[in-house]
Simulated scan of single mutants.
Amino acid sequence: MPKRKNSDIKDYTLKNGEKRYKFQTYLGLDDNGKRVMVTRQGFRTYTEANEEYEKLRAKGTQGYTKPKQTTVEEVWKLWFDNYKRHAKEATAHKMEQMYKYHVKPDFGNSYIDKIKPPKIQKWINHLSTTLVQYRSAFNLLNNLIKYSIVMGFASYNPMSRVLVPKKTTKKRRDTKNNYYSSTEEVTKFLEAARNDSEMAYVFFKLLVSTGIRKGEALALKWSDIDFKNNIIHITKTVDVGFHNKELIRSPKTKESTRDVPLSKNLKVDLLKYRSNLYEYIFCKANGEHLSLSTPASWLARIYKNNTELKQITVHGFRHTFATLTLQPGMGNTPKDIQKILGHSTVDMTLNIYTHESKKGQQNVIRSIDALNF
């Protein structure tokens, strides 16, 4: 292998292990007497880098124009165009919203190679006090700067000099109190929901009897329920895509595609409720699935008309299911409930979705059927 003579050309390694080449060279003085240094990188081979090096050296400062600086907004458009081709539409939409509301206002018009660590530090310090998912915003800006380096728009990453603060914001949901801790509380709520509407009653009965997510429930079709074997197949969910348009997509994780047991009481209510000929269980008059905002409207109306009820969120019924089914004496293991909830780890089930029950050590429930809602 011939010895490489150009000592200005250096090799470096990307995070994925691939090798690239770069160089920096002096071209001379421009018309204002300023030194012109150029840097190029991203070459796949030494030969490619050397050819570009020789070309620039031959021209010197003649015809040389300083490369146009690139803004964060321009980098975002390039990066996101590629990202959305591989991500689920709902996921890409969330990323687009994160950029629009939390990155663009502060950095959109900034040249990406001129962003300094102090500005980023001030930005992330403030964001940590106002946004629960502030680390996602930080990671997005970091990815954009890394991408700009690969593309040759910037030469170093100022994010490496920024200290990410610890979380200071509270979660939007009070998970410590966002659940019903006894079957009595659930029964009182379901009675109130039945008085509101049959559809609302069956919807919340479904959530608290299975622990499935709101979007998963709204995406259910009658064909997803195996009444013979008492199984509900969870294979899709309602989510939000581009332009805030709701869509049906596959569940959020691999583990979220699952089968959950159909209790006897829920089965009776579903069969009694099954009076429409439409494919979706919860649908509008034209047969389309309900909007993601509809359950919250039901809940608000139920609580307004029944002020004595403890108020929880729609997601709180998932917490309730996990808490009641994991009580001492229930006979279920965390692994059992993890599979039903569609969690990737047991820790998530135990740390997020379970709470101390009022029934304590009493043998309250021995199976999901015994919940007897």
Rank of each mutant, 00 (worst) to 15 (best):
S293W: 05
D347H: 08
Y46H: 15
F80L: 12
I145D: 08
T333H: 03
R172V: 15
A192T: 10
L207N: 06
A217M: 05
G28D: 06
K335R: 12
S223G: 02
F242V: 12
V72A: 00
H93D: 09
L341N: 13
N244C: 08
S293P: 06
F138A: 14
L27V: 03
P251L: 04
D369I: 10
L78M: 10
N332Q: 04
T91L: 03
R274V: 05
E73P: 01
P158M: 00
L326I: 07
D113T: 06
T175H: 11
A200D: 13
Y280S: 05
S182L: 12
A137W: 05
S263H: 08
I337K: 03
K88T: 06
I368W: 09
Y147F: 14
E185W: 04
L190S: 09
D336K: 09
M37Q: 11
L27T: 04
V202R: 00
K284Q: 14
Q62T: 14
N195K: 15
E74L: 05
T313A: 07
S357M: 01
N230E: 14
D81E: 11
T294N: 05
V240S: 04
K34P: 02
H315L: 02
T187K: 07
V208F: 03
N139V: 02
G108M: 02
S7H: 13
K335T: 13
N276C: 01
N6C: 09
Y147T: 07
C283S: 15
N178F: 00
T294D: 01
L220G: 05
L163K: 15
F373R: 05
G329S: 05
L341Y: 14
L277F: 07
F138C: 07
G108S: 07
S136P: 01
Y179Q: 03
S293R: 04
N177W: 01
R40P: 02
I112W: 01
H233I: 12
K116T: 14
A192R: 04
D113K: 03
T168M: 15
R172E: 15
T294A: 03
T354A: 12
Y101H: 14
Q24L: 06
W123P: 10
F189S: 10
K214E: 11
